[in-house]
Nucleic acid binder design. Sequence first.
RNA 1: UGGGAUGUCGUCUAACGGUAGGACAGCGGACUCUGGCUCCGUACGUAGGGGUUCAAAUCCUCUCAUCCCAGCCA
Length: 554
Amino acid sequence: MEVSNFIRNIIDEDLKTGKHTKIITRFPPEPNAYLHIGHSKSICLNFGLARDYNGVCHLRFDDTNPTAEDVEFVDSIIEDIHWLGFDWKDKLFYASDYYEKLYEYAEILIQDGKAFVCDLTFEELNKTRGTLKEPGTNSPYRDRSVEENLDLFRRMRAGEFEEGSKTLRAKIDMSSGNVNMRDPVIYRIKFAHHHRTGDKWCIYPMYDYTHCISDALEGITHSICTLEFEDHRPLYDWFLDQLPVPCHPRQIEFARMNLTYTVMSKRLMLKLVNEGYVKSFDDPRMPSLAGMRRRGFTPEAIRDFSDRIGVAKASSIVDFELLQFCLRNDLNLRADRAMVVLDPLKVTLENYPDDLNEEIEALNNPENPDSGTRMIPFSKEIYIERDDFKEDAPNKWFRMAPGREVRLKHAYYIICKDVVKDADGNITELICTYDPESRGGGTPDNRKVKGTIHWVSAIYNIPVEVRLYEQLFTKPDPMDAEEGKTWLDYLNPESLVTVNGFAEPGLKNTKAGNRYQFLRLGYFVTDKDSTPEKPVFNRIVTLKDTWAKMEKKM
RNA sequence: UGGGAUGUCGUCUAACGGUAGGACAGCGGACUCUGGCUCCGUACGUAGGGGUUCAAAUCCUCUCAUCCCAGCCA
């Protein structure tokens, strides 16, 4: 699809004026958490730009805080981005690759009198920083000599000082309205083991200092980040202006994505897992890419979704319905159909020969002529969906009801003659007749039937477990809680309903990751818990249900 | 008088002084061996006031609303 947005306008202009002849973007995750659907916007944006403009997108891990980061996350992030369909070839970088260069630049800053070693404690520093409305005050260590600063900084690196006892700070302006400019810390002491550099360093550079220089070292042309970094841009530019860096990338901010019925912060996702509201980080209800992957969402649908939501600077919350649309749109063309009954009601065809065993041919996917056909066993006793029968049916109902004729998908027309009930009045069975002339779903007299329902043989079927997933929350914006409530009060108790159903036998050897449309029910994916003895399916998304909508209005 | 940003159909987004367009959702209909898909039709919007201009979503101005910032996190 064609996309137009303010970032592309900027790039078009830069290419037109000759500011750049080629663009380089980057996706810079910190390896301290799993990726979620919100990240996919940034991933699709950065890699998509590189793809469309014939440029390059780097993957760079922003690993400057060893106490939070771990290889576990670099591995999962790499897996997720690849799964989404993007690749960076040999352009895989780590901010930690630049530690030595970053250190050299810091000495330059000191030599130029633009950075100083500060002995203020954490609390003291906070006190002198001022508030949002009041300016801060200069550190008493601000005017140390270049020689002293250099000596102290080198000794910081050498490990002579305790954690927290000293920092290296940029000398900018303690009275700036932008608190980021109030002599920000650029190095802190941490005696921590880094997942890549090991114990080589005991001082680590801060984000603001590291990010802009990393961008410059990699020749990034457009450094695209989210809105909350807008306040940091003056600092980004300040560092690059002070230092002899190879280029000065342009930072551009866009609004991060929010999605209805979803929480996306790392903290909240962690709580959902740790406190058992979901089973794991790849629980199919989680907004993590791992969860969505297990849920059966396709990378194609997520990329399409990314294109459709666009990019802008106004904060927004996207309807989850759009993602569902993208999913159905993609799956409709690709998922083979299958018949599964989740809530069985037995139907006996009284005029069907006792000893007849037929196989019915069925189209795998009417949207895809190449998908071929399969055979489904038919028998005198079958199961239909309990919902598809109504004893007192309204006029507009054209599924099964006493005396009404319906079509069994791919098979025969049947008419309900009798309803069998137990002592409590529950319907236990339907006695029907079938029209042998209607085999394959049509009759010589071209008789029309309004309703077509799905079914499985009551004899030749396999039991399957089906996990019906819905939104994790009942409120579009769970964070917008009423008085006295929290987001956890809006957890949907029915976000997972597990049912045991019956499927056509062909599903026996399904493999994890296979996707299907269970006719009239929705799209499903085989879960990794699946075995040949007991296939397990996750519902990806339901089909649109016009009848349910009509029923609601009645 | 801290600083920074943002306001366009219900939602997301386009327009770069010249017909406010698209998508999802909604509504109505056609088609259909899935009440799916597809197709057709339809309703709905420039936060508010003032100004500049032949012409303003777009430029100026005031107001209002919302979001972000006081980690040795990113």
